[in-house]
C-alpha cells in the first residue's frame, strides 16, 4: 500500500512539474490577453498614448473630468467625428439630456443615435440592451452631469454583463463622468487640463493637442495587488 502511495505521489509530483512548465498562470494569461487586445485608434495622440495605442475593443473605458471645462466634450466630439469618417455608427446615451446640437458638425450627426436618459440606472439599462446590437461598434455614455452617488444604483453584475457583450461584439464603450463609475472598467483616464475662455475660438485640434490625460491606476492591477496583499 505504501509502495503504491509512494509511486502515486511521485507521479503526481512529476505531473505537477510538467504542468507547471506547460500551463500559464492567470496573471500571465491576463498580460497576454492585454497585449493581444485590438484597439480602436482614435487619432487623438494623447488619448492613444494613455491607453496603450487606442480604445481597447471589448472593454469599458472611463474618461473622468472632475469638473466642467476639462475637455471631455471635445474628446466626445472627436470620437464622433472619427467614427463618422470611418462609416461607423455611434450610440450616445445622454444622462440628463444636455446634448447641444450646435456643438457638433452636422455631418458627424448622420451616424449618431442619441438616447436621452433620466438617470444613470436607466442609461446603464439602455446600454445593456444596446450592446447586444452588432450595428454599433462605439457607445458613448455621457454621465458628466450625474451625481457620483447615482452610479451606486447600478448593480455590478449588470456592468459585467455589458462587458461580456462588448467582448462578444468587439465594441467599445466610453464613459464620461465626474468620478469613478465601475470596477468593471479596465482603463480609466482623468482629464487634468482646464479650458480657458480664449479656447472658445480655438480650433478643436488645438484644444485636443493641449488636453492632458492622467492614466489612473488600472483596475486589474489594483485587484492583482489586493490579491497579493491578501
Amino acid at each position: 500500500m505504501s509502495v503504491i502511495g509512494k509511486s502515486k505521489s511521485e507521479a503526481l509530483d512529476s505531473l505537477r512539474k510538467q504542468l507547471g512548465r506547460q500551463i500559464k498562470s492567470g496573471t500571465v494569461l491576463l498580460q497576454e490577453r492585454e497585449q493581444k487586445t485590438i484597439r480602436l485608434v482614435t487619432g487623438l495622440d494623447g488619448l492613444n498614448a494613455s491607453l496603450g495605442g487606442g480604445l481597447p475593443q471589448g472593454q469599458l473605458t472611463e474618461i473622468i473630468g472632475r469638473g466642467p471645462s476639462r475637455g471631455g466634450g471635445v474628446i466626445m466630439a472627436a470620437l464622433l467625428s472619427g467614427a463618422r469618417s470611418e462609416g461607423r455608427y455611434v450610440m450616445l446615451l445622454d444622462i440628463g439630456a444636455g446634448f447641444s446640437i450646435g456643438s457638433f458638425p452636422e455631418k458627424d450627426l448622420e451616424s449618431l443615435l442619441w438616447v436621452s436618459c433620466d438617470s444613470a440606472r436607466q442609461a446603464v439599462e439602455a446600454l445593456d440592451v444596446a450592446t447586444r446590437d452588432e450595428n454599433f461598434p462605439l457607445f458613448l455614455l455621457d454621465g458628466r452631469d450625474c451625481d457620483p452617488s447615482d452610479w451606486n444604483s447600478v448593480r455590478a453584475q449588470q456592468w459585467y454583463r455589458i462587458l461580456n457583450q462588448l467582448r462578444q461584439r468587439e465594441a467599445v464603450a466610453v464613459i464620461f463622468a465626474r468620478s469613478e463609475v465601475t470596477s468593471a472598467t479596465k482603463h480609466r483616464l482623468e482629464l487634468v487640463s482646464r479650458l480657458a475662455l480664449d479656447d472658445l475660438h480655438q480650433e478643436r485640434e488645438t484644444i485636443l493637442s493641449r488636453t492632458r490625460f492622467q492614466p489612473l491606476r488600472r483596475v486589474v492591477e489594483e485587484q492583482e495587488e489586493q490579491l497579493r496583499v491578501g
Partner: peptide
Amino acid sequence: PILPGALSQGAGPPVTGPTLRK
C-alpha cells in the same frame, strides 16, 4: 488613424471651441 481635424467640412458651418453641455 483619422485625425478629427483632417475631415472634410462638408455640411454645416465649421465648429470651433469646446462643446456646450446644456
